[in-house]
């Protein structure tokens, strides 16, 4: 099987990998870098469990061939700062937004990509931002509430 060497910035660090030609970004993140926070749900880009940020934008890592991210910045849930993580944890857990938790890392990254752009959010904005992340447990409402609470907090605090 042909291998392809490439390097990129993963969670703030420059890394290199040499996976099989047909490996997806999801495969490389989980199997090569051990970042199991990126989840496998459908492998066709329809559930969002594998969502990561690519150059700050939410994408499904299962439908990106790994070498395509050459020289790009990739952020997984493991790459959040401690402050960011804590913020999301408190908001999500308090709102009841975490049941089985499988969709959660993907949800948070989709939320982060929205929050990094604007904090003056309507409920519709939030629902749109997570519309590519399927959740079978919560029915979304408490997730939307959690993200809204994070936005409100950040508006006040300008933590990042």
């Amino acid at each position: 099987m042909d291998k392809v060497k490439f390097s990129f910035i993963l969670n703030g660090k420059i890394v290199a990998a040499e996976p099989d030609l047909y490996s997806t970004l999801l495969d490389v993140l989980r199997d090569y870098f051990g970042l199991t926070g990126v989840k496998r749900g459908c492998e066709i880009g329809e559930c969002g469990a594998c969502t990561v940020l690519l150059n700050g934008k939410a994408v499904c890592s299962c439908i990106i061939l790994a070498p395509s991210v050459e020289n790009c910045e990739v952020l997984t849930i493991e790459g959040l700062t401690n402050k960011e993580l804590r913020l999301f944890q408190e908001a999500f857990i308090t709102a009841g937004a975490v049941q089985c938790g499988y969709c959660t890392p993907g949800m948070i990254l989709s939320a982060k990509s929205l929050l990094d752009c604007k904090l003056d959010l309507s409920i519709k904005d939030i629902k749109l931002a997570i519309s590519g992340n399927l959740c079978r447990c919560t029915g979304y409402e408490q997730i939307v509430e959690a993200i809204h609470n994070v936005a409100n907090y950040l508006k006040q605090k300008e933590v990042f």
Binding site: L21, T24, E43, I44, G45, C62, I63, I64, L65, S68
Partner: peptide, 22 residues
């Protein structure tokens, strides 16, 4: 790749050479 990569993962499409335009 939102259409093509699925063909590789699921339908065993095996391109010999790949040119990424992104």
């Amino acid at each position: 790749g939102t259409d093509l990569v699925k063909e590789i993962t699921k339908k065993s499409l095996r391109p010999k050479k790949i040119l990424d335009l992104t």
